[in-house]
């Protein structure tokens, strides 16, 4: 079972879980703050809409196309 950190809090997930799913497993499901300050969550689930952009180990990546890995650091807030 991979253990990652989501916004500073540890989270244990089933193997094969996407970071998009982890956002809801370990938080309120939201991924980013929009240009006008709204919280947003993953929408298309397939790498198109870019709503699920999060920072993973310092790089901006898509939560819906990234699998959770042990030791991964995920940040959904600036």
């Amino acid at each position: 079972m991979p253990e990652l950190t989501l916004d500073g809090r540890p989270l244990l997930v089933a193997p094969g879980t996407t970071v998009a799913a982890a956002l809801l497993l370990g938080g309120d499901g939201t991924s980013r703050t929009s240009v006008s300050g709204q919280r947003r969550a993953p929408v298309c689930g397939m790498g198109i809409c870019q709503e699920c952009r999060v920072t993973i180990d310092g790089q901006r990546r898509l939560a819906c196309q990234t699998l959770c890995r042990d030791g991964m650091r995920v940040e959904s807030r600036p």
Binding site: V13, A14, G16, T17, T18, A20, A21, A22, L24, L25, G29, A41, P42, V43, C44, G45, M46, C49, C64
Partner: peptide, 16 residues
């Protein structure tokens, strides 16, 4: 609010 296929994809990926 998600896409229809979007919901399916997110659930398959482990979203409860």
């Amino acid at each position: 609010v998600t896409g229809a296929g979007g919901l399916q994809a997110l659930i398959k990926g482990g979203m409860p």
